[in-house]
Structures are given as C-alpha cells and as structure tokens.
Amino acid sequence: MSQLCFVVQTGPYTYQNLDTAYGLAKAALAKGHGVSLFLYIDGVMAANKNIDAPGERNLAAMLQELAGAGAQIAACGACSKFRGVTEEMYIDGAEMGSLVDMADMLQEADVLVNLGF
C-alpha cells in the first residue's frame, strides 16, 4: 500500500483545504493506505481541540477522527507558538512537530498533497 502525506498550510475556516485533506485521507485510510498530515503556518489552528465550531463542520473533530483511524498528525511547533496554540490544546493523537518531522513524513511518502495558498 502507498503512504500519502498531506501538508495543510491554510487556516481551518478560511479555505477548504483541510476539508479536502480530510476527505482524501479518510478514503485512503479506508483502502488501507498510510496517511500522515503535517499542519503548517495557519493550518496549525485546526489541531486546537478548543474550537467550538457550529454545525457539522467541526474540523478539530474531523482531525480527531483521522488520528483515531491511524493517521499520523503533527503540527509545526513554531507556527503553533506564534499563534498561541500550545501542545495541551491539540486534539488527542496530534503532536507538536518541526520541519524535521515534515521532512521525515515527505521522505516516507509515495504521494504528497500540498494544500496551501
């Protein structure tokens, strides 16, 4: 099976990039593929479990679902700190990472999907 890596650079409620990553990652996991997700720049905001999103589009819960299904999720630590998001605020299954972690994810990936500006 393939290993897919998603890099999401945009904020969770600004663009639909995280929704796209979620849908593709969920489908890939269902087919037995490996999935890693690196949240970068404003994308780190999606890992904040304290977001109280109205309606069905709770992106933190969607990320939590991916983590529970086996996706590796890391958020850039420097980006998080600059935005006031601490590791304690992350959803379960997400870890504070660095660009070294992103490089490792990229090296292991067969497919890269970069969702940015």
Rank of each mutant, 00 (worst) to 15 (best):
F6Q: 02
V8S: 01
T10M: 10
T10N: 08
Y13G: 06
Y15N: 12
Y15W: 12
Q16L: 09
N17Q: 08
N17F: 01
L18C: 01
D19I: 08
D19G: 15
T20Y: 15
A21K: 08
Y22A: 03
G23S: 13
G23R: 14
L24N: 08
A25C: 05
A25W: 01
A25Q: 03
A28G: 15
L29D: 11
L29Y: 09
A30H: 04
K31M: 15
G32L: 04
H33I: 04
G34M: 12
G34S: 13
G34Q: 15
L37G: 01
L39V: 12
Y40V: 02
D42W: 10
D42A: 05
G43C: 07
G43H: 05
G43I: 05
G43L: 03
V44P: 01
V44I: 08
M45H: 04
A46C: 05
A46D: 00
A47T: 08
N48W: 01
K49Y: 10
K49D: 10
I51V: 12
I51T: 13
A53G: 04
P54K: 11
P54T: 15
P54S: 12
E56Y: 12
N58T: 04
A60W: 04
M62W: 15
M62D: 14
L63G: 03
L63R: 01
L63N: 02
Q64N: 13
E65A: 11
E65F: 06
L66Q: 02
A67T: 14
G68S: 10
G68D: 11
A69G: 06
G70C: 02
A71C: 11
I73W: 08
A74D: 05
A75P: 04
C76E: 13
C76D: 14
C76V: 02
C76L: 09
G77Q: 10
G77W: 09
G77R: 08
A78L: 12
C79I: 00
C79H: 01
K81P: 00
F82C: 01
R83T: 03
V85P: 00
T86A: 15
E87C: 04
M89E: 08
I91G: 06
D92K: 11
D92E: 13
G93K: 07
G93P: 07
A94R: 03
E95F: 12
M96W: 00
M96P: 01
M96R: 04
G97C: 06
S98A: 13
L99M: 15
L99E: 06
V100N: 11
D101H: 05
M102E: 08
M102C: 08
M102R: 09
L106V: 09
L106Y: 05
E108P: 05
A109D: 03
D110P: 01
D110I: 00
V111R: 15
V113N: 06
N114K: 10
L115P: 11
F117T: 06
